[in-house]
Design a protein around this nucleic acid. Structure first.
Length: 578
RNA sequence: CGGGGUGUAGCUCAGUUUGGCCAGAGCGCCUGGUUUGGGACCAGGAAGUCGCAGGUUCGAAUCCUGUCACCCCGACCA
């Protein structure tokens, strides 16, 4: 490709609305432009990267026995009503009505589509297993799109869905996908951490996420100091904290705390600390109202709470409900005397282990001091349970091992779905004994755009991007650094030779000063640059430089193309050797 | 959805507090010339309904009302 004939609009200045390196550099290097909040146009160079990542994913999926399909992005809402996800997905699900008045859904993921297909086509265990995938646009009406392509409304995702007659078979495909994912991310030149994203319910290894550790990540990864296990914070278990020796505490004492509802404000007002408070959150799930108690400095983990309400949607109770069950304004709920007013009380281990604490008084503008768990409110009973319902925090342990934290970008997830979708959409098969059973399912996703952003987050410097060879928009860039005809001709010759050898090469044939070309080359981040300058040309040499290295190598002009194409192959082999 | 912020040239932003100079700068773009290995220099030039709609006023980028878009923060409220 000749630079003069492509379209790579680079910009010097950092765009005002881009915060993280990948977002800034994708704009600056002319890879993409914003169309609207959370939607981006991929320009030619960006599109090449997208295509390369998709091709790696496609190759690894095919190698692992998955079969490519394409399911429509616009799907009948009726299908989503049957699985209940039109409600469960909430506002994030994009919908529109067509001219016939039919509701349509913009696919944020495609369990329904693929399961529908299976329901139509799978009759017998003899047809199983089957693993189908697509690489297609997904749409999510995100609450808050941000960080460029990391959390966008429209994005490219590879999603696969497998169907099985047995748990063992599902596990085999699950592991095949797990291995395929390792290959995909390694080939893309990414260092990744695999975290456990789901335990309990499915037993054992129900779901793993592939995450790229980096500061811009939105997910929190929790891992043991020995790094022998890692979890998404949504699933990270914690040891119950030790109960301190019982403290001398008088009876609960009401204190007037006018307009002081928040933990912070109460601490300020009562000169206490968050870890001495018991936070009482009221949730609802349909008609059922329940309370969750955690220590003031801890955070409730909705995913953990969900384990107690499998398959149901839970949310924080609205103000009216809170008033009804606590008899007080929002901000003054507490566990003392709450038992009869809610259907259930879930108490985190750490809250239960407190010797004494401060809580809301279930009375507007009042809190209670000297509240002793177990004495002033029950820790056991029919509707009371002490359990793990909070996020792991600094200082926690699991299995006696210290827990550490870092941020990560989730780029892939493998998940054992079970029969949720196959039951609801009647994707069933007859087994050897003639019994009709719902298929066991797995689903496996990879965020294509996130791979690109992660690669940039991991590989950039003050000048621009440093692409791994496998996903670089071009493998080699040729920069004639002087306008003399013989230099241009030499560049042209090497360009043709490289093309003939199947190397993806970008020839900077623009009539510009060398400095400008160098700046653009560094911004774009093509891994190998061949520079032809007056001085080296006079000596019959070309300069070969890696984007990642400072030093250059002087190669005979006649040998340059051969030398460079060998380098390309070696760098690719290194990435593919997994 | 709540809170905060920003909308002025293709980009980054000044000007708005205190209404009145001709609506500006840097970068980019066009023309000519000089340059030519790390985002050159000189000269000339094009380019903005000041987000949009109302209103106040002799006069509005500036004040008021509404509206739209974009950005940031947000369970910690129990």
């Amino acid at each position: 490709m000749r630079y003069s004939q492509t379209f790579i609009p680079t910009v010097k200045e950092v765009p005002a609305d881009a915060e993280i390196p990948s977002h800034q550099l994708m704009i600056r290097a002319g890879l993409m432009r914003k169309l609207a909040s959370g939607t981006y146009i991929y320009l030619p160079a960006g599109q090449r990267i997208l295509r390369k990542v998709m091709e790696i994913v496609r190759q690894e999926m095919d190698r692992a026995g998955a079969l490519e399909c394409t399911v429509p992005v616009v799907q009948p809402a009726e299908l989503w009503q049957r699985t209940g996800r039109d409600v469960d997905y909430g506002e994030t699900l994009g919908k529109f009505k067509d001219r016939h008045g039919r509701m349509n859904v913009l696919s944020p993921t495609a369990e329904e589509g693929f399961t529908y297909l299976a329901s139509q086509e799978i009759q017998s265990y003899k047809q199983l297993p089957v693993n189908l995938y697509q690489i297609n646009t997904k749409y999510r009406d995100e609450f808050r799109p941000r960080f460029g392509v990391l959390r966008s409304r429209e994005f490219m995702m590879k999603d696969a869905y497998s169907f099985h007659a047995s748990e063992a078979c599902l596990h085999r495909t699950y592991m095949a996908m797990y291995e395929a994912y390792k290959r995909v991310f390694a080939r893309c030149g990414l260092t990744y951490v695999i975290v456990e994203a789901e335990t309990g319910e499915m037993g054992g290894t129900g779901s793993h996420q592939f995450t790229i550790p980096c500061a811009s990540g939105e997910d929190v990864i929790v891992y043991t100091a020995a790094e022998d296990r890692a979890w998404n914070i949504e699933k990270a278990p914690v040891d119950p904290v030790a109960k301190p020796p019982a403290a001398e505490a008088g009876p609960p004492e009401e204190v007037h705390t006018p307009n002081v509802g928040s933990i912070e404000a109460v601490c300020e007002f009562l000169k206490t600390r968050p870890e001495q408070m018991i936070k009482t959150l009221v949730y609802q799930s349909g008609e059922e109202v329940f309370a969750a108690l955690v220590r003031g400095d801890h955070e409730v983990n909705p995913e953990k709470l969900n384990q107690f309400f499998v398959g149901r949607h839970i949310e924080l109770a609205d103000e009216a409900t809170i008033r009804k069950v606590t008899g007080a304004a929002v901000g003054f709920a507490g566990p003392v005397g709450l038992a009869g007013h809610v259907d259930r009380i879930l108490i985190d281990h750490a809250a239960a282990a407190m010797a004494v604490g401060v809580t809301g008084a279930n009375k507007t503008d009042y809190h209670l001091k000297n509240v002793v768990p177990g004495r002033d409110f029950p820790l056991e009973g029919e509707a009371v349970q002490v359990c793990d319902i909070r996020n792991a925090a600094e200082g926690d342990t699991y299995g006696g091992k210290k827990l550490l934290f870092k941020r990560g970008i989730e780029v892939g997830q493998v998940f054992k779905l079970g029969t949720k979708y196959s039951t609801k959409l009647e994707a069933r098969f007859l087994d050897e004994e003639g019994n009709r059973k719902p298929c066991l399912m797995g689903c496996y996703g990879i965020g294509i755009n996130r791979i690109i952003a992660s690669a940039i987050e991991l590989n950039n410097d003050e000048w621009g991007i440093l692409w791994p060879m496998s996903i670089a928009p071009w493998q080699v860039m040729i920069t004639p650094a002087a306008p003399e005809a013989e230099i241009v001709a030499a560049a042209e010759e090497i360009y043709q030779q490289l093309l003939n050898q199947g190397v993806e090469v970008l020839l900077d044939d623009r009539d510009l000063r060398a400095g400008v070309k160098f700046k653009d080359a560094d911004l774009l981040g093509i891994p190998i640059r061949i520079t032809l300058g007056k001085k080296s040309f006079a000596e019959g040499k070309a300069e070969v430089k890696l984007r990642s290295e400072k030093d250059k190598e002087m190669i005979d002009l006649a040998a340059t193309a051969e030398h460079v194409s060998k380098m390309v192959r070696q760098m690719l082999d290194q990435l593919n050797a997994v």
